[in-house]
Amino acid sequence: MANNVSHTTEYRTLGKVLLFLMLCTFLTITVTGIHLGPFSVTVALLIACAKAYTVMTYFMHLKYESLLLKLLVGFVFVLFVLIILITFIDYAFR
């Protein structure tokens, strides 16, 4: 009956998520200060992925969505990564 197909996330949870995201931002800025050479991109991207995962899971309520939607989101990201990797088969060996 009721229209509440969506999960209600408590304010407190949202606040905690923001805190975590801020922490990640701080971390990623600090890490670039340290010279990690080629790994600095990797670290920056890993942190960005963690942030994106958190935003999707909690802010976008993906945690409470159907398995189907979760799979679709995963599929889109995997597809994109595959496309980039395959493009680099050309560029890395040229």
Binding site: T28, I29, T32, G33, A44, I47
Partner: peptide
């Protein structure tokens, strides 16, 4: 943000 600003 990291890709544009943080590649020093």
């Amino acid at each position: 943000f990291p890709l544009m600003y943080l590649i020093s």
